[in-house]
Amino acid sequence: MLFRLPCQLLLAISWLVVGNPVLRKRDADFESVRTRLTKDHSGKGGDPKQKYFHESTFHPHYDGRFAEKVLPNNERHKYLSEMMQTYLSTMNDVGAETWIMHGSLLGWWWNRKIMPWDSDVDVQMSESSIEYLATYYNMTIHHYRLPGTPGGRDYLLEVNPYYVNGSTTDWLNVIDARWIDTESGLFIDITTLRRDREKEQKGLKGHMMCKDKHEYLAADIFPLRDSEFEGTPTKIPYAYAGLLEKEYGSKALTNKNFENHFFDEKKMEWIPNGWLNRHNGGIAANTKPKIKAK
């Protein structure tokens, strides 16, 4: 993995240092991080001033500084998978503690993969790790060589400076950091799992919360487990099954028909409805050669 700061950003910083001896907090606007686009598609113009991250003008799951259009579903899935792999691998390399949650945890439970209909992936991070990333890794670019991607791809790690404010009243900044694919504009939202200090003041111990208002018991998350997701080592919260039952109901652990897909127990894959008829004349699934996962 190569590791460099975007030169535009370095220039911006040196200009600030030379032109103005006091370093001001500023956001990474289009001009300072732009790659191939000539026009900014971020929704910055319409967002309140205190909001740090801006979703694109065309879709909330894209960063308008790097993309101007949504991807077709099958392509998006490939980008999501590569983004997850590079994120987990980078966090593991730098020693930041992160784990998968929500829809990604449910995908992991079924077959260790992102569910084909998911439009994003969900991760959480510990308080000390977000502080660590903010201190040493903010605005770093991580270059990955990926199979089938000539020239590789750059991922940007951007920390929201408002991460220091842990209050849920800061509702414009519930996302503490992003792992951004600078080619597709897709990103992973990173939320910090914090001690619930309000509850602690009331004498309640072991409660945790995120700025997005999700609440957990510390004992349900820690100690973390080691497993794999999208073929990459990942951490899993301690009480994964209980967390999934609480969030999605126990049906989510048995329902094999979901979002126009069915779960094939032989292949351990979610297969789109109608796939057999289109590809096979309706012959049983196990007689068909294996579908490529990625």
Binding site: N111, S250, T254, F263, M268
Partner: peptide, 13 residues
């Protein structure tokens, strides 16, 4: 058709 235990059993280090 929707019984518990159809998933790939979670594996850990």
């Amino acid at each position: 058709p929707n019984s518990f235990g159809a998933n790939t059993r979670p594996q850990f280090t």
